[in-house]
Structure formats: structure tokens, C-alpha cells
Design a protein around this nucleic acid. Structure first.
Lengths: 357, 357
DNA sequence: TTCGTGTGATAAAGCGCTTCATCACGGCGT
DNA sequence: ACGCCGTGATGAAGCGCTTTATCACACGAA
């Protein structure tokens, strides 16, 4: 266990320096090795089964070709929400593409003291922070330690590297869709206000409705959350109001929330989308398999992950990054939960099938 | 950037050795430091903001306190199946509990040559392999390099450390449930046969039905897969047979497959569970939000992840592990997709509500 | 006084790799 | 013939930490 450079050097009858230069191509000059020794070294390495020790390499170079991914909470994956998983997908993909490695960290919420962020150690060259909620402790730690990072879902700030999707526009798209289908009494189940994306989605939604001449009354904006159960509860609140106050269209915080809302709606024996249209957010695979399938604002989640990684690596390798606060665009994916026609029933409001983009 | 032991030593007016011993408690003897210097050192470290360099530590000790998690494919997270995400949850949780770190690897399917497994480098003390399909290349690489590993979902073999759930029993539970509810014409949509869990589930299912005096005819065992779409297609095949051959109960490969099957069933305007009962497998959160919610064989997925980590660390730290091929138990979680009563309709076969465990 | 012996502390040798500084050598221009 | 330079190759320092061997120094017992 553990063939070292020295072993290879001895076998090939050369020096460690030459072996190092040959096997791990030094960038260009300083060390030169002739073709003959090169071959001898390669053969020796192969026959001994040499495999480099990245730890030693890291110590010597000060770089580890490893990125960290900091997840907001330990439960990021038990969670019913595939969001983290999808960010991770993008991150992993790009990391693999670029021949980097990935370390996983979690901002353990149970130990909020100064210890925790120490997890983010010098094993990594830089880190990707998934920070739906502001957590300045970790960012501060990175700043202090001089660890470059880029955050996902954190609001832009001066000098802050962060990738976001256009939540405000997402809200507007949802509003426009409902309005186009003829809905005039619409509601919004907001995400948790601790999460940075919630407010812009709500604001975009309300702004668009207002511009369309149909402002959303305050009681139609119901605090909810990003889970199935919060969606269910919040929708029930709406449906407990007098019948004439019921919305005909609902814009939910995300897909899980929307499905929760749909459950509440079904329990009232209302049909979707005829009696009540529903729009979700995120457009994860989940939206495609609900019953009925969800119309949802599509957020390029895994792209956000890969962009973050891309920016980070570019920065680490000294390339210039012009836009370090990209705002990725969203669009609406239309399915049956909010459409003029339903698969199994009579057509709904048929006036506008106009594509929204 | 980079306060070293030496800096602290100078500041405290002592030697590096003492600082090392004080700050990173050496186990017991060899080096002794008096209380006075101890205090001085701690103060110095604090004031300089010293933080240890784990890379150097690793190089010196040969241990990294880091585990690797090898995922079967890059798309493990884009995938609609939350399985990987849940294993990961368990892994991460235990890793954090034990104060280890986690590196993420992926068996990139696009580069099946010898290069790939090199990703698993000596940065890790051991690795957890999630190997639904046999992939001996990676295992072989670990063997060769002497990297300890434990695999999840790999069939037991001599000397092989692996954690599994009792798939055979899971199949039996599903069969028993259907039988108890009076179903005599039952079908099984199998998982992909490349995946180790598929066969035992099928075998358990068929064995139980046979023992109950109701063997499953061969055409009722339909090759399917672990996705929504394969479930949909396979169910359609079943429903394309003459009406009198239709099953009254279906045991699907997993929850996604079951939901696909349910879609096919709905398209035929059959109701679930009255006309056709459906049982899923895995019992991820997904099973709870389908329409109707899925009865599903519960597999302790995240526990499998944490057990794997637990075993691995125990081994690494020289503790004795008596059972290195644990078979975790499964149970049936009953919901509406396979129950005598339906929420919105007439009772189905009311004979047996007996709990199955 | 002398010899252990326990205590506090340190110098220095690695861990496996990178890389700077240096060197030997042969060919070429003048 | 001399000095120069490009080429091939190497020794050794150093990355930040652990750990072994060693040492200095009292203090109590013989």
C-alpha cells in the first residue's frame, strides 16, 4: 500500500524531481526530461502501479482541486423537496466536468456556535453555499479565512458572488397566466419569509396583477411555506372564508405547496382546474406526476448549481468573470392544473390559450 | 491567510511540538505539556486565529477522517427517484455525527475505462459504494488499493461488507397484503433485472402467492423498471390483454413505477383501489402524496446509509464489527391505493382489514 | 553524595510531493 | 581555442503537521 515517487525513481534509476515532472506534467519550463528517461519512468510507474497521493500534492501546492458544497441543513435530502438534490446534481456534474472533487458540508443547525463553520476547512479551494436563508456566520467565516465562495439563492450584495433565478419575473409569469385564463380573484400562498426567494415572487405576482388592473387584496396573500403540509393548511384557510371570497386561481410557493393546496381543494370536492386553477413553482420532476400535473414556473435549478461551480472555478484559476451575480431566467411550464381545458371534463374558460413566455 | 503551528509556537515562546500536543490533543503520553505553557499556547492560538491545516495533518498521520460516497451515476440526483438522495441523507447524518467529512464521487458512466475509479483517491479513509448494479471495476479498484469499503444494495458475498434490506420479505408482504384483501389475480411489475433488488422482490412475491395457493402466472410478471414511464408502459401492456385477464392487484417495482401504473389505470377510467389495487416499494415521501396515496413496502433507506457509514468507521477505527452484512427489515405502510375502503367511493372487498407486519 | 525517576519541553526526522537553484555537458559562433 | 547557451537532470528545501528520541531538571530515596 503506497508506492511513492521515490519508489518509482529508484526503479527507473532517476531522481524524484524527474519523475514528478514526467508523471504530473509540470506546467512547461523549469524541469526538463528527455524522451528516453520519460519512457523509462512511465514504464516503471506502470509496473509498480504508482498512484499519486493527492494529499501530499495539496500540501505542496496549496491547492486541492476540491470544492466544498455547503448545504443549508442536515435534512436537505430527507426533505420532500427535491430542490437541494437538484442543485447538487448541477454542482456534481460541473465538478466532474472540470475534473475537480467535491466535499459535502452541512450547516448543522443544532450547533450554531463558532465550531460549526470550522468544518469548512482548508481542504477546499473554494465553496458553493446553498443559502436559502441568510446565514452570515458561514459567509463571515469564509471571508475571514479568505476562502472564495459563491452562494446560491442569496440576494446580491456588493462584491458578493451569487447566482439566482429571476423570482420576481416568475411571480409575474404566474399572475399573467392566471389573468390570461380569465381569473380575476387570485390568491398567493407565500413561501417562508426567511427564504430570500419568497418576497420577490410575491411582489412580482402582486405587481403584475396590479398592472393588469386587478390588484390582489391583502387577505388573498396567505403566509404558507415550501412543504406539502403548509400548502394544505394555508389553502384550507382560504377555503374557510365565505364562498364568494374563494379565489379561482392560486399561485403556490412551490410544487409541494401546490400539491398540498390541491389536496385541500379536492377535499372540498372542487375540481382542478375548472373550479380552481393552481400554479406551482420550481417545476421539478414532481410537477409532472401530480394529479393533475402542475403548471409551474420553471426554475433552472441544476443550472444554478453548475453555474455556481463554473464561476467559482473560473475565479480560482484566475480567469476573469465579468458577471458574478447572474440572474437566470425562468419560464412557465404549462400543464393541466392551470389550463383552459381539463383532460376529463368540460372546457374551462376558453378565451385565451395564448402562450406565455 | 494561514497561521501555522510555528507562528503560534513563536508567539507563545515554545516549540511546535508542544503546541501540536496542546492544540490537537495527542492521545495520552509521549508528549507532556505543563498547565502554564498550555494556557499560554491556547491564548496565543486564539489571538492569532489559528486554524489547523487538515491536509498537513493527513499527510503526517495517514488518516484523513474523510469518507467517500460513490454514487452509481452522475444523474443520481436529477433522477425522479429520491432513493439516492435518501441514502445520502443517512450517510451525511452519520458522517456528521461521527465528526467525519464526506467526499462525493460518481461512477461516471461515460468513461468506463480504468481512469474513472482513480477518482477514488487516497484522500479518503474508506468509501461507501451505492451499487444497485454490480460494478466490479470500482470494487476491484478499491481492493487493489486497499481502500476499505462497504456497499449498499450489493448482494452479500464472501468477505464483502454490504448492507441490504430484506427484499425477499418485502415481496412476500406485498403478496400477503393483496391476498388478504381478497385479490386472487395479481401482477408484478418487476424492476430492472440489472439491479440486485429486483429479483428477490419478485421471488418473494411469487413464493408467497404460491404458498397461499394462488401462484402468479408467468404473463402476470411484467418486466418494467424503476421509473414513472416504465411503470406506465408496463401497466398498459397488462391492460391491453383481454379484460378477464386483468389483474385486480398490482405490485410495482417502486413508488415511481407504481405512480406510472396508476396513470395507466386512470386512463382506462378504472378506480383505485376499487377496480385495481396498487402497491409500491420504497415508501419514500413520494408515496404519501400521490393520488391516491400509495400503500408501499417501507425500506429504511436512509438507515441503510447511516449503517453503512457506522460499520465503515467502526472498522476504520479498529472496533470489531460482528455483522458486516446486515439485512435491514422492511414493513408495509398502508395507504389508500391498496385498502378495502376508498376515501371517495364505495367500500371494496371488506373481508380483511387485518394488519400485516 | 549518588542514582534513579517522573515531569516538562524540544529538536528533528519524516509524510509524499513540488519546485527552485544548480550543475554537467556538448554544440556552436567567433 | 574560448565562452555561451540550450538541454537534460538532480539535490535539497519546504508545505504544516505528528511523533520519536532525547534532554534538562528537580526531588526523594539509598
Amino acid at each position: 500500500m503506497g508506492v511513492t515517487l521515490k519508489d518509482v525513481a529508484k526503479e527507473a534509476g532517476t531522481s524524484v524531481a524527474s519523475v514528478s515532472a514526467t508523471l504530473h506534467g509540470t506546467r512547461g519550463e523549469t524541469i526538463r526530461v528527455g524522451q528516453a528517461t520519460r519512457d523509462r519512468i512511465k514504464k516503471a510507474a506502470l509496473s509498480l502501479g504508482y498512484v499519486a497521493n493527492p494529499i501530499a500534492k495539496s500540501l505542496a501546492t496549496g491547492k486541492s482541486r476540491t470544492l466544498g458544497l455547503m448545504l443549508p441543513y442536515v435534512d436537505a435530502f430527507r426533505d420532500e423537496n427535491p430542490f437541494c438534490a437538484q442543485v447538487m446534481h448541477g454542482v456534481l456534474e460541473e465538478v466532474v466536468n472540470r475534473h475537480y472533487n467535491l466535499m459535502l458540508y452541512t450547516a448543522a443547525s443544532d450547533a450554531p456556535d463558532a465550531q460549526t463553520p470550522l468544518l469548512v476547512d482548508s481542504r477546499v479551494d473554494g465553496i458553493v453555499l446553498v443559502m436559502p436563508e441568510e446565514n452570515s456566520a458561514i459567509a463571515a467565516h469564509c471571508d475571514r479565512q479568505g476562502i472564495p465562495y459563491v452562494s446560491v439563492l442569496q440576494r446580491p450584495g456588493p462584491g458578493r458572488w451569487c447566482v439566482n433565478a429571476d423570482d420576481y419575473r416568475g411571480g409575474r409569469l404566474a399572475a399573467r397566466r392566471l389573468w390570461n385564463l380569465g381569473h380575476r380573484r387570485v390568491a398567493h400562498l407565500t413561501g417562508s419569509m426567511d427564504v430570500a426567494t419568497s418576497a420577490p415572487r410575491r411582489d412580482g405576482f402582486c405587481a403584475e396583477m396590479k398592472e393588469l388592473g386587478c390588484p390582489v387584496p391583502e387577505f388573498m396573500v396567505v403566509p404558507s411555506g415550501f412543504t406539502h403540509s403548509t400548502g394544505y393548511e394555508s389553502m384550507k384557510i382560504l377555503l374557510n372564508s365565505p364562498r364568494e371570497d374563494w379565489p379561482t386561481g392560486v399561485f403556490a410557493a412551490n410544487d409541494q405547496c401546490a400539491e398540498g393546496a390541491m389536496r385541500a381543494i379536492r377535499e372540498r370536492k372542487l375540481s382542478i382546474p375548472e373550479d380552481l386553477a393552481v400554479i406551482g413553482y420550481d417545476d421539478t420532476w414532481y410537477a409532472g406526476v401530480t394529479q393533475p400535473p402542475l403548471t409551474s414556473v420553471h426554475m433552472p435549478i441544476s443550472e444554478m448549481g453548475s453555474q455556481a461551480v463554473g464561476m467559482l472555478i473560473d475565479r480560482l484559476e484566475g480567469r476573469e468573470v465579468t458577471n458574478y451575480q447572474p440572474l437566470l431566467s425562468v419560464h412557465l411550464t404549462i400543464r393541466q392544473s392551470c389550463s383552459p381545458f381539463s383532460p376529463a371534463s368540460t372546457p374551462g374558460t376558453p378565451e385565451s390559450t395564448a402562450l406565455i413566455q
